[in-house]
Design a protein around this nucleic acid. Structure first.
Length: 433
RNA sequence: GGAGAGGUGGCCGAGUGGUUGAAGGCGCACGCUUGGAAAGCGUGUGUGCCAGCAAUGGUACCGUGAGUUCGAAUCUCAUCCUCUCCGCCA
């Protein structure tokens, strides 16, 4: 959520921002309900004050009939006022929750993802002296992916990952954990990105729960679109769609000491997506699955460190891709594409020779205090002041998609796959799969 | 899944209908004391919302939600969580 006081003072800008992001919200109506609600709240507070006064006169066990009558009258008025207050509050809250976070100043304005801006391209697209195949074809030859049996067992968009591909996945996981838990590496990444001021505090690896309650999912503002989420029928639980969902909500209702920040996690989790509305899209191989494993960064910082943290996350993403020698593009997402709770969003697209295209493999999201306001995740500053923390999340690697990139960029004509040098120590020194 | 116990402030812990935001202790902050420290003494020490420049005032919050009552941390119901025993289980 935004700060209602901010909305009161910047109604026009908030309305404009919602328009730019493609969300239909009527700020005037929101503020009208805000006024009604405050008025009723005031009335309710005054009635309660009276009630407390009357009640205190009866303490000591001498309630007179007059006082009881007065109390009853107050109770009646209060019941009426509070019924109206509840109604106003519900109307207000419904509108309030729809207001998207303010986009940062440098986010390009655009109404569709076509208006995203290519920020930079790193590395040349891989060239071959033969016609490169896509990962599905290579995987079929090498018996790395079995989707037919997965379909029998679980349906479409599931797969059995097999053999060396499994070893590759575990190798990548180790490589990432080693990278982001090492201070020297983080310092080098920060320096290269020109982020002198940023903390180099290492990430703490986390294996989170994969299910999340409705209340917290909604507070994270990642429950929608519900069509894309798996709901457990007999419980108030959803399968998480990204480790960010269960990492960001982890510290709801908590107050950090300033010295604890930044708090950085690298989570490893299987993510679940229904992929509603994507029938027939990306059906080959494992590009778009109902279930995929992902390494995700999440952090909590003070307000003034939030943007630097976001930029560090992007720098880490670039470092990981560059270290594997994969060609990629950095996309600055426009207002329509960054998402409701986001202030800023960056995508990274990796070159996939099998598709002859760059495809999205990473996202970095900066939410400012939009999520933490509902989650009530705060920090006590050294001054003693309480402030909302800023949250950031970003993909380290989506394992399925990054393995596609490794296979397709590293293939030879026979179907062998070169293992990036940085990963070789994690695969017993092998250079080829 | 069955039986039972419990959820109170940063922590421990009292409180079963009426000046209770909540005793007491610990911790923490500031001050006094001391050559310095400890001990001791004193004062202070939650969060949200509304009003106010502020001081401050009002209100709400004792897991969560609903209810009973003139009045609820205290009574009723539902629900979540924790713990113990039994059962089941990787």
């Amino acid at each position: 959520m935004l700060d209602i006081r901010f909305i009161r003072e910047n109604a026009e800008a908030v309305q404009q921002n919602a328009r730019h992001k493609g969300y239909e919200v009527n700020i005037d109506e929101l503020l009208r309900w805000d006024g009604v609600k405050r008025n009723l709240q005031q009335q309710s507070d005054e009635l309660r004050e009276k009630r407390n006064l009357v009640s205190s006169q009866m303490k000591g066990g001498r309630p007179t009939p007059e006082l009881i009558e007065e109390g009853k009258a107050i109770k009646e008025s209060l019941t009426a006022v509070e019924a109206n207050l509840k109604e106003a509050d519900e109307a207000f809250t419904t509108l309030f929750k729809r207001v998207p976070n303010m986009a940062a100043d440098d986010v390009p304005i655009g109404l569709t993802e076509d208006e995203n801006v290519l920020a930079k391209t790193v590395g040349d697209t891989t060239t071959f002296d033969f016609a490169p195949r896509n990962h599905a074809e290579i995987a079929a030859q090498r018996d790395w992916i079995d989707k037919e049996r997965a379909a029998k067992v679980a349906g479409s968009r599931f797969a059995y990952i097999k053999g060396d591909l499994v070893k590759l996945q575990f190798g990548i996981i180790q490589f990432v954990l080693d990278t982001v838990t090492d201070e020297a590496t983080l310092r080098a990444i920060a320096e290269k990105a020109g982020l002198d001021e940023v903390s180099i505090k290492p990430f703490t690896p986390i294996l989170p729960p994969l299910m999340i309650r409705t209340e917290l999912y909604d507070a994270m503002d990642r429950l929608e679109p519900r069509d894309d989420r798996y709901k457990l029928e007999d419980d108030d639980l959803w399968l998480q769609g990204s480790a960010e969902h269960v990492l960001g909500s982890m510290h709801a209702d908590e107050i950090f000491e300033e010295s604890q920040l930044p708090l950085r996690y690298i989570g490893y989790a299987t993510s679940f997506r229904r992929e509603a509305g994507t029938y027939g899209k990306d059906m080959e191989g494992i590009l778009r699955m109902h279930q995929f494993d992902k390494l995700e960064m999440e952090s909590f910082t003070t307000g003034e460190d939030g943007l630097k943290e976001h930029l560090l996350f992007v720098a880490i993403q670039e470092h990981l891709l560059a270290t594997l020698g994969l060609p990629y593009q950095v996309i600055q997402k426009c207002t329509a594409d960054i998402g409701k709770p986001n202030a800023r969003g960056i995508d990274m697209e990796t070159w996939l020779p099998g598709q002859d295209k760059y495809r999205e493999t990473h996202t970095a999201d900066y939410m400012t205090d939009y999520q933490s306001r509902r989650l009530k995740t705060r920090v006590r500053r050294e001054s003693g002041e309480l402030e909302l923390v800023h949250t950031n999340d970003a993909t380290a690697f989506a394992l399925g998609r990054i393995m596609i990139a490794i296979i397709e960029n590293g293939q030879d004509e026979q179907g062998n796959v070169a293992i990036p040098v940085a990963l070789q120590p994690y695969l017993g020194g092998r250079s080829v799969l």
